[in-house]
Write a protein that binds this DNA or RNA. Structure first.
Lengths: 219, 219
DNA sequence: TTTTATTTTTAGGCTTGTCTAAATATTTTA
DNA sequence: TAAAATATTTAGACAAGCCTAAAAATAAAA
């Protein structure tokens, strides 16, 4: 089945929203995700339903069919592999790769994704710490420990981030916090839940808003 | 200026046709190149003329403006760099890269092309032997010696091909003729202008149609 | 439970890029 | 150079994806 970029973007949007909102997704939610109007979403949903890519009953919201889900995961796979390429090979910063990957994920080829994956030596996670689905669409979800829940005095490694917004990524760049950075929680401030953290190079204060958005692995 | 993929493809088509046909290009020629109808071409030409990307007077054919030419060369640059990537890094065959590069050349980014070029270590030619324009759009054209004009007994190296059609590329693959292959012209047949040629591994008969399409450097 | 507010869908319209068919220009040929 | 052939342009239509405005359905509040 050959889909337009737009159709692919709808599937991807539904996929990520369904993941965050337990399956059924509303028209409005999709329209916000894609910066379109609800009426446009309805149009496209009906088109996708005709192609058996989504389950749809009027006024009841949408969910992906098995095929729709499979395609969505393939796009996610492509997106994340390209992100790795851009970061590891072309030396982009991790806050720059997303926008470009949004374009590259739509390149059509039977062989490209697998060749790219092999060239990158089968990475398991993208620069944001999100897992890369394998050829069959299987995804290994990493654990959900946030920096905010690490105890005082303990060490941990940054393995991913929850909020991939541009300002947040730029902020992390400034703090010199990267995937794989080792952090030590020196102290916590009960008043505002901020914490004092040591990196290998500096000692920094991190607000609760930040620490709730950093996935870590405890050491 | 932000152009659609379609607009970019028109500029590229006009560019390569103008190169082969001394500047002015006819509507029909473009329609054949792009597999559309002449009327569609007229529509698009008028749109491109409004944007000052082509010179156009009714019934008189089109040519690229300076800006149009600049954009066309940028697309060619991107196309050829991606071809090198696909061949050198992802290990595609040279008859497979063109179609994929047709997609990749439309990826929009201010920085991607230059980063890709650096990653590939500033290649000067693509897998078909065509020169890669530099950042400023300068192109080094290679010499025009065809295999058909090499004298009996002389050696030469394959540096490019004229006709990049899929069957031709596949045929070269089968003959194990690649960029950089050394050939020796053993004998020529005056009757049909075919020639007997020795590669490092075999001795093959090459028709005039083939030998007229292979750029070589005499040794 | 009935009214009010919100969400979703329908209806009709717009743009891009394409098409066919008809009209107009240019080129070729006799 | 006039008639015939060919090339180009115009006119009108269509699909994809989007929009606004209005109608219909659902959810929330009184």
């Amino acid at each position: 089945m050959l889909l337009s970029q737009t159709e692919e973007n709808y599937l991807k949007a539904i996929y990520s929203l369904a993941y965050a909102n337990s399956n059924k997704v509303s028209t409005t939610l999709i329209s916000e995700e894609l910066n379109t109007k609800a009426s446009s979403v309805t149009d496209m949903i009906q088109k996708l339903a005709e192609k058996d890519l989504v389950h749809y009953k009027k006024y009841q919201g949408v969910s992906l069919t098995e095929i729709g889900q499979k395609i969505a995961v393939e796009i996610v796979r492509k997106h994340r592999l390209w992100e790795v390429f851009l970061l590891n090979k072309l030396h982009y910063n991790w806050d720059e790769v997303h926008e470009l990957a949004e374009q590259l994920e739509h390149i059509k080829s039977n062989t490209l994704t697998d060749k790219l994956e092999a060239f990158l030596e089968f990475p398991t996670h993208d620069p944001h710490g999100d897992p890369i689905p394998d050829r069959e669409g299987n995804i290994k979800h990493h654990n959900n420990t946030m920096l905010s829940s690490v105890e005082t005095g303990k060490f941990c490694i940054v393995i991913g981030i929850k909020d991939s917004s541009d300002p947040f990524l730029k902020f992390l760049d400034k703090l010199q916090i990267q995937l794989g950075s080792t952090l030590k929680v020196v102290s916590k401030e009960p008043f505002d839940n901020s914490m004092l953290v040591e990196t290998t190079t500096a000692s920094i204060s991190i607000s609760n808003q930040i620490s709730k958005n950093l996935f870590v692995k405890k050491l």
